[in-house]
Design a protein around this nucleic acid. Sequence first.
DNA 1: GAGGTTAGTGTCAGTCGCTGACACTTGACA
DNA 2: TGTCAAGTGTCAGCGACTGACACTAACCTC
Lengths: 225, 225
Amino acid sequence: MTAEQPTARRTPTPAPAGLRERKKQRTRDALLRAALELFTTRGYEETTVDEIVDAVDVSQRTFFRYFASKEDAAFAVQQMVERHFVSALQERPAHEAPLEAMRNAVLSAWDTIGEAIMEVVPIELYLRTSQVIESTPALLAVHLRRSIEMEENIARLIADREGLDVDADPRPRVAVAAFSGVMRMTGQLWGRGEDPSLEAIRALTEAYLDHLRPALAADWRGTRA
Amino acid sequence: MTAEQPTARRTPTPAPAGLRERKKQRTRDALLRAALELFTTRGYEETTVDEIVDAVDVSQRTFFRYFASKEDAAFAVQQMVERHFVSALQERPAHEAPLEAMRNAVLSAWDTIGEAIMEVVPIELYLRTSQVIESTPALLAVHLRRSIEMEENIARLIADREGLDVDADPRPRVAVAAFSGVMRMTGQLWGRGEDPSLEAIRALTEAYLDHLRPALAADWRGTRA
DNA sequence: GAGGTTAGTGTCAGTCGCTGACACTTGACA
DNA sequence: TGTCAAGTGTCAGCGACTGACACTAACCTC
């Protein structure tokens, strides 16, 4: 192992091979769970890394071997979700139009990610975490930066699919911007809403994405949502 | 003085009254200049607060009495610009349409802010600072959060002007979002461009804002930019 | 199954951002 | 001129994070 992202999980789904690997997974998961649990109860700023490691009974140094920073832990699940989405997008057939491909990718991602998340943390903890992110200035800032980085990546991916140059043709970036605007919105709605289930966010995603194109129409009159 | 923003300048333009006040202004300005100078040469992360205070020959404690954080210093000039814009916007006559008012506010702000900035730092240092902000992840994150906060404030201001409810009517937020998207873009272009003058950014602003409405038209064909 | 290799962990010491408490200095003002 | 208060320095300490190094335990080989 030379230069690996501290946050990277090495085994996407298959059960880890060796005992060593399984132990690593366990400590990482335990740290993550403890961190999110504390963030969502005590608050992010009020939680010290020492409290996290005490709950798991490892040294502080170990925490920073798994997570590049305290912030990094807060975004670990989000990062999983993003990875799922990206690989789902890459697997969409070439004939699908950009928006169609992105839409299908999120929906199929939500279908498969459930178990992947729950292996690590209960989804309800993931929901509470996103609330913490939205309401903690330092985390919100990082979240926004991560979002635009993500947008840029996806725009390039879409441009590749369509054989376009992101810098010459504005359409990939525009389409992705509109799409991820809606995504961000449904994420917020889910966080504020009553239903913490995965079906709920999937349904929200579907419903709001269906409204994207009509909402961009020239004339809103005479039509009903 | 009970609860004042660490970054607030108490005297907008008129020369400070007492000697004490003038001294304060001098140390603050010196700290800010030293900080930005170091950020733009060495880099933000590579600059320690101790290096800044050593350059001005004050204690570290004093730095944190003027600036809430190291980040805060990086955004001090930007904050000045924003304040100028907001008060310019508040002074726009009521009959101007939202976009018109915002447009006129930026342009008049750029006209008056020059001297205000240069009293403190050379504009060219301000330009270099915005490059540092764009290229430093931690600062970019804060910049984005500040931007959406600013958008929200302006949207409320516009809604007030028009006698609307921001939460009921989406138009204020949409208009502001579009406007500040263009603002952010011209800011980046100015930072990357050749001409570090205020006239340059003023002209950029004017030119790109002129394109906002046509760019949103349904049909781009048959017309030339 | 002993023995060497190596990955993962703990310990320690140190840096940097930031804060509260308190004492000192120096403009301000009666 | 003396009093008051604002501004500053000093000090001690917390919390996030890092490098160095020693130790332990899975792993692999013979």
